[in-house]
Amino acid sequence: MTTPAIRATALNKTFRSTDGTSVVAVEHVDLTVQPGEIVAFLGPNGAGKTTTVDMLLGLTSPTSGTIELYGATPHHAVVDGRVSAVLQTGGLLTDFTVRETIQAIAALHGRPDRVDAVIERTGLAPLASRLVKACSGGEQQRLKFALALVPDPDLIILDEPTTGMDVAARQAFWDTMRADAETGRTIVFATHYLAEADAFADRTVLMADGRIVADGPTAEIRAEYGGRTVTFRPPSHVVDGQGIDEAWLDAVRAAVAPLGVTELEVASASLEAAFLALTSTTEAQEALR
């Protein structure tokens, strides 16, 4: 039997607020990710995504529950170089050049042989001699990604990895990630760019109020919860309807044609619509039942 890349069981995390009350950040989260999967981790602010990511990486301990990465504790998996991360937080050595920064981390991992390969892989060659403090936010994010690749990990966990990148840089980043995924690397990423999750993730996990409210193939979640919209233009106004599939489209066209209706369109199911439905308080509670 293949050992899962991630196995989290009954994870709970509570914090003590300044007034002494307990705040539940993550509640009874079960998550299993198999090697080679590409998983998007979505949820509104305060949903528990970042806390869950921190627990997966061993940066904070669960109040209760267990976590294994490739059968080991998060700490040991990270120390062994099997797991790397690109996080929103965490600074860089601003007075080092890009190359010097990668060389320093490579030395810590005992992998000086990876420096040139990582620079090339992440498109940082033109920036190699630039001081980190002279790099833009997006360029620094690419450098963090390069550092995550130094140990050649089996699993990369990314928390909002393209924050600060422009459209072209985001596209280049995901091109690199797709190439890495094809080699069998496991990728788990949290993002607020729903288009990225829709385009890249085979599987989507949605969190709301500290709990997982949906977990499955991205296309299935989009289809089940996103719905479809039929839009057409009568002579004087626009009418919208939902839930119409392809089988009904020709019938609708035939029915409305005598009325002079034009511009009949069917919009496919939207991950954004599914996200909004599943992470709203009422819908999230219903989905958990």
Rank of each mutant, 00 (worst) to 15 (best):
I105M: 10
L108P: 00
T162R: 02
E160L: 09
A168Y: 01
I156T: 11
D166T: 05
I157D: 08
L155N: 06
A117Y: 02
A107E: 09
I102W: 02
I102S: 04
G138P: 14
A106H: 12
L127Y: 12
G138I: 11
G123K: 12
D113Q: 13
V118S: 08
T122N: 09
E100H: 08
V115C: 11
R111E: 02
R114C: 00
L127K: 01
D154C: 01
K144H: 09
P112A: 02
A168E: 12
R170V: 06
L147V: 15
P161D: 03
G137V: 13
A169R: 12
R142A: 04
V118T: 10
P151R: 08
T163P: 04
L127P: 00
A134M: 14
D116S: 07
K133G: 12
L124G: 04
L147N: 11
E139M: 15
S129T: 15
R130N: 08
G123Y: 03
I157T: 10
A168Q: 12
R142H: 01
K133A: 13
Q171V: 12
A117L: 12
L149P: 04
D116Q: 14
D152T: 10
V167C: 03
D113A: 11
Q140H: 01
T162M: 08
Q103T: 13
L158A: 15
T162W: 01
G138T: 04
D113E: 12
T101C: 02
C135R: 01
I156K: 00
L143P: 07
V150R: 11
A128Y: 06
E139K: 04
E160D: 04
P161T: 09
A168S: 13
T163A: 15
G164N: 13
L131H: 09
Q140K: 15
A168C: 00
F145C: 07
L149E: 07
R114M: 14
K144M: 14
L149T: 08
D113M: 00
A128L: 06
L131E: 05
V150H: 10
R130M: 13
G164K: 09
R111T: 06
P153M: 12
V132W: 10
